[in-house]
Design a protein around this nucleic acid. Structure first.
Length: 250
DNA sequence: GCGACAG
DNA sequence: ATCTTGTCGC
């Protein structure tokens, strides 16, 4: 993907990061500023391997609306910061950017595993990423960080949704992406409206709770992460080698 | 002081 | 995020 101008430093103290978030939040665009024809949607996620201290980010690119997988990349680097609620982007974004940088095709829209503006300072990881790349983004979280919604009024059928409210302000929506399953928390990331965000989130679902972009990125970030079965001889491998390795197991 | 707290 | 077996329901 094209190179972008860094917005700021990443290695900041928590209080500096908080101050920066307040500053950046003012730049988030909450209206639709995306191509009339969205043809490619990217999904990103990150997993951590506690065995080696590495964070592995995954970026996938899907065609839209067909949702065919066109690209998938992973990028690893050491975990740089502990998890602090509200400061997730400072822990995960540098690595996520590394994965997105491997894309050949620039996406029209990016879906992120986490909040957009449904955040204490209105700058969740999706919004932060959108500002950094100046691309439309949507926050697709599995749970609430900030705000509340009325569970009673949320229907059980796919497509129903209720607003996520923070002291009366609408900061997102609880969206039923799958029947009888906990709703996704969808919020504006950047350069998109809430209504449009919900529309894309739903049109990217294929029978699972998570929209495909995020679901596939989530899977990719975990699958390659520390999953090499021990010495299992492969087809066509020298039998003598297998014998030697078998003996080493004794 | 107590509760809440993306991933 | 990660751990972790069975279990309830469409």
């Amino acid at each position: 993907m094209r190179a972008v101008r860094p917005l700021h430093e990443w290695n900041l103290q928590p209080e500096q990061a908080v101050a920066l978030q307040k500053e950046l939040a003012r730049r988030v665009i909450r209206e639709d500023r995306l191509p009339p024809q969205v043809q490619h949607i990217a999904g990103v996620d990150l997993a951590i391997n506690e065995n080696n201290g590495l964070a592995r980010a995954a970026a996938v690119l899907l065609s839209y609306p067909s949702l065919q997988l066109e690209e998938q990349h992973v990028y690893e680097e050491p975990v740089r910061m502990e998890y602090i609620p509200g400061l997730l982007s400072f822990r995960e974004l540098p690595c996520v950017l590394g994965a997105l940088n491997l894309l050949r095709q620039e996406p029209d829209l990016i879906m992120v595993d986490g909040q957009g503006i449904a955040h204490p300072r209105r700058l969740g990881i999706a919004s932060h990423l959108g500002l950094w790349l100046d691309l439309p983004t949507i926050g697709c979280a599995k749970s609430v960080l900030r705000g509340h919604y009325n569970e009673q009024e949320l229907g059980e059928t796919v497509g129903s949704w209720v607003p996520l409210l923070d002291h009366g302000e609408i900061i997102g929506a609880a969206v039923r992406t799958r029947e009888h399953v906990k709703p996704m928390i969808i919020s504006i990331g950047h350069r998109i409206s809430l209504e449009t965000s919900i529309r894309y989130a739903l049109s990217c679902c294929r029978g699972y709770r998570l929209p495909e972009p995020t679901r596939l990125a989530d899977r990719l970030s975990k699958n390659n992460a520390y999953r090499e079965p021990a010495n299992r001889p492969k087809e066509g491998q020298d039998t003598a080698n297998g014998a030697v390795q078998d003996s080493l197991w004794q």
